[in-house]
Design a protein around this nucleic acid. Structure first.
Length: 560
RNA sequence: UCGGGGAUCGUCUAAUGGUAGGACUGCGGAUUCUGGUUCCGCAUAUCAAGGUUCGAAUCCUUGUCCCCGAACCA
């Protein structure tokens, strides 16, 4: 089955079947449940697209719920950043912003209820003793000596835990399930721990906090979530997820469904490694344009449309894999090609003097803003006797199939005219410093009335009108597709120093002088660029989002 | 030695007993005032071995390989 929303996948089919069967009254409610302890990255984007996308597709709703049950690592700053990132991606949770911490009272009452049913108990053992008692994959666990405490004693102890009568870590509330269960999550998992830490929302109201396994499913139930979509590593937890809901005899039963998280070649996504990149100074912060964070991608110039397209194209399944980064790159180009205004910018300027062009004259040539989009209009670009062209567009000795500048070869200056290179000027060291050319005034506008063809077209900037700019050329952060998977080598060894190259003296056409931060352009024949936060009036800084495909580079690389 | 998942082109993903399809990548070619875009074409896959069936990626059996799990993290 294929729809406008993309190809079929097991989540879509499962939800469609539930809706068709009238489960939950045919309603669909999902949620995106980040822990506010870090910045969102492209892996989260996948989950966001899935949860919000599926809800929208089935006429349901998606909640934004912060899973803030561990005050030691969560902060308001992250809540704000996450909200901004989800919005930027194009999703809206309406009034449905929730916090697990908003359910602390209810969760506490339910815990008391479970104690009353003999399904939870307070354990005085140390962390080490509990770990020891849990056993391991091959050895069954053993019951805690506190396992058979009376309901009354448990009630009293739990109340005193809440009241702050015991030091941190002294006791935990445990679900009473089965210490010999093959699934370790079922061996009397902790529900509450004592932890005196200031919570970003509840302040110092609590000194006990619920664990993920206890809080998550019940929060889902409270919100009427129908499909609780999470990643594969929680498959083992589903049994526990269901157990709490069952034990409390809750009427609404959300269903946990797991999918394989999104990962890419040439990228690392683990929170720990991302943090290491930032803390270790390997990148310039969480919003470094080489980071796979939403903020990094945004600063790089990537569009939310491209990210959503990747999420859609990669579907959903239970096989863990690694998507080829070229798919992301393709979607970025795809969207930017359709939407970016064009401009001319010379990254590595080589002066070109048109000897038969009046020294004081200026011609203004009309250039379309986007050949892909006539509605984008056009602009005038100034042309004068001295211009800059890309140094790499000139070869003193033309290789085979070389259409660009070379002695005696005629080339088109885009939207301007034909010029022919007559002479190459070098400095004492033999470096080419200037090209002397003549133009054909009849080719004004870019075509010759006699119909003669030129194969090469180059971009250019009038020297007198050029704006100097800094351009940051970003590339893949790693030199290896799987930096984490190379035998016996640290992933940081594959950080690619060429992932950023700063060009100080780029020359831009004057229309680019004062462009708002975040504005995206295609620099013709070069790539897609985005005005960086560091731009100053009259002195823009541009980030390269992604280069244009370069088939000449391929020909040349093949030894042509 | 345990439990839970998963194996389809190089990569991601469809096909739910009836022609193994799509996308990205790669390689050709056409068009082009971006060696871009667009268009056309080519190449490449069912983990293995048995079995059931007129017919198997799909069902059965036996293997093999990969991922996750032993926080008072989420």
């Amino acid at each position: 089955m294929t729809t406008d929303d993309g190809p079929s996948n097991f989540l879509r089919e499962l939800i469609a079947a539930d809706v068709a069967a009238g489960k939950h009254g045919g309603r669909v409610v999902t949620r995106f449940p980040p822990e506010p302890n870090g910045y969102l990255h492209i892996g989260h984007a996948k989950s966001i697209c899935l949860n919000f996308g599926l809800a929208r597709e089935f006429g349901g709703t998606c909640n934004l719920r912060f899973d803030d049950t561990n005050p030691a690592r969560e902060e308001q700053e992250y809540v704000d950043a996450i909200e901004a990132d989800v919005r930027w991606l194009g999703f809206d949770w309406g009034e449905r912003k929730y916090f697990a911490s908003g359910y602390f009272d209810q969760l506490y009452r339910w815990a008391v209820q479970l104690i009353g049913k003999g399904l939870a108990y307070v354990d005085d053992q140390t962390t080490e003793q509990i770990r020891e008692g849990r056993g391991n994959f091959y050895r069954k666990g053993t019951d805690s000596p506190n396992r058979d405490r009376s309901v009354d004693e448990n009630l009293e102890l739990f109340e005193r835990m809440r009241a702050g009568e015991f030091p941190d870590g002294a006791r935990v509330l445990r679900a009473k399930i089965d210490m010999s269960h093959a699934n370790l999550n079922m061996r009397d998992p902790p529900m509450y721990r004592i932890k005196r830490a200031h919570h970003h929302r509840t302040g110092d109201d609590w000194c006990i906090y619920p664990m993920y396994d206890y809080a998550h499913g019940l929060s889902d139930a409270l919100e009427g979530v129908t499909h609780s979509i999470c990643t594969l590593e929680f498959e083992d937890h589903r049994l526990l997820y269901d157990w709490f809901i069952e034990a409390l005899e809750l009427e609404h039963r959300p269903q946990q469904v797991e999918f394989a998280k999104l990962n890419f070649s040439y990228i690392v996504l683990s929170k720990r490694k991302l943090l290491e990149l930032v803390k270790g100074g390997y990148v310039n912060g969480w919003d470094d344009p080489r980071m796979p964070t939403i903020r990094g991608l945004r600063r790089r110039g990537v569009t939310p449309e491209a990210i959503r397209a990747v999420a859609e194209r990669t579907g959903a399944s239970k096989r863990d894999g690694r998507v080829d980064i070229t798919l992301l790159e393709h979607e970025i180009r795809e969207h930017l090609n359709a939407t970016s205004p064009r401009a001319m910018a010379v990254l590595d300027p080589l002066k070109l003097v048109i000897e038969n062009f009046d020294e004081h004259a200026v011609e203004w040539f009309e250039a379309p803003n986007n050949p892909e989009d006539p509605a984008a209009g056009g602009r005038k670009v100034p042309f004068s006797r001295e211009i800059y062209i890309e140094r790499d567009d000139f070869r003193e000795v033309a290789p085979k199939k070389w259409y660009r500048f070379a002695p005696g070869q005629e080339v088109r200056l885009r939207y301007a005219c034909f010029v022919r290179c007559n002479e190459v000027i070098k400095d004492a060291a033999g470096n080419v410093v200037e090209l002397r050319c003549t133009w054909d005034p009849a080719s004004r506008g870019g075509d010759s009335p006699d119909g003669r063809k030129v194969r090469g077209t180059s971009h250019w900037v009038s020297a007198r009108h050029a704006i100097a700019a800094e351009v940051r050329l970003y590339d893949r952060l790693f030199s290896e597709p799987d930096p984490e998977g190379i035998d016996g080598r640290d992933w940081k060894e594959f950080l690619d120093p060429r992932s950023i190259r700063v060009v100080a003296g780029a020359m831009l056409e004057p229309s680019l002088a004062d462009v708002p931060v975040g504005a995206r352009f295609q620099f013709e024949r070069v790539g897609y660029f985005c005005a960086d936060d560091d731009s100053r009036p009259g002195h823009p800084v541009f980030n390269r989002t992604i280069g244009l495909k370069d088939s000449w580079a391929k020909i040349e690389a093949k030894g042509g």
